[in-house]
Design a protein around this nucleic acid. Structure first.
Length: 224
DNA sequence: ATATCGATTATCT
DNA sequence: GATAATCGATATG
């Protein structure tokens, strides 16, 4: 567990659509420990999900779905288990999974992964040279923009793709790994509805996003 | 048509 | 700790 580079525990089976046909909170909680897989050509890239955030749909001010069903957000309003990919800050793509039944726009943002297979490919995609003993390993996939770059996820390529299908090129699977300790915190990087505890992480994992892996800003309290 | 700002990251002090 | 980079979705005139 220290040296992060662990293979999957066994065969990886795709999650079924029912898994995603639930509230974002439940899906987020249960996605911890699951595996994101990229099958493109011969090389398989995979990484364990270690950090996610729940977005509650049209009534959640922080959710893109709060703007309604537009060309951009239509996947969120569609059936569960599909990829919602958006472009942010002029630089980065981020990956969500649609939840709930069709018509309800809940989703889960994938925020950080722990690389399992295809480390070299991820490093190349990220422009990182992995040296022995360096601290660069978590930088491959610790953050929504970083993991998208490592997996080559873009809007044109992956928005709307079926994450329950092995043949879609991008999917989410289960290798029988079970999360030990789960931690819940407020969501990161948002201004609206920023106080709700909707961020889920595998406690102690080295690939969690944020400046120092853990320490979330405890500042901006002072209001008592 | 133009302005604002964001579910981020890399790089600087 | 602070900020530049960079562009498309959305709001406003």
């Amino acid at each position: 567990m220290q040296s992060s580079v662990c293979p999957p525990l066994g065969p990886i089976r795709p999650l079924d659509r029912e898994f995603f046909a639930r509230t974002p909170r439940r899906v987020a909680r249960d996605l911890l420990g699951k595996i994101l897989v990229r099958d493109s050509g011969k090389v398989r890239i995979s990484a364990r999900i270690v950090e996610v955030e729940a977005y509650l749909g049209q009534n959640d001010p922080a959710a893109h779905a709060s703007a309604g069903n537009t060309a951009r957000t239509s996947v969120l309003f569609g059936p569960p288990g599909y990829a919602y990919v958006y472009f942010i800050y002029g630089n980065h793509y981020c990956l969500n999974v649609s939840c709930e039944q069709e018509g309800k726009a809940g989703s889960v943002l994938i925020r950080a992964l722990e690389p399992l297979e295809g480390i070299e490919e991820m490093a190349r995609a990220r422009g990182i040279v992995l040296r022995h003993g360096s601290q660069d390993f978590p930088k491959l996939t610790s953050g929504p923009g970083r993991l998208a770059e490592a997996f080559g996820i873009t809007r044109t390529r992956d928005n709307g793709c079926d994450l329950t299908s092995r043949t879609s090129g991008l999917w989410i699977g289960d290798d029988a790994f079970r999360a030990k300790r789960i931690q819940i915190t407020p969501r990161i990087g948002i201004s609206k509805a920023a106080d709700h505890p909707l961020r889920y992480i595998l406690a102690g994992n080295k690939c969690i996003s944020g400046p120092k892996n853990s320490r979330q800003r405890l500042k901006t309290h002072s209001k008592a």
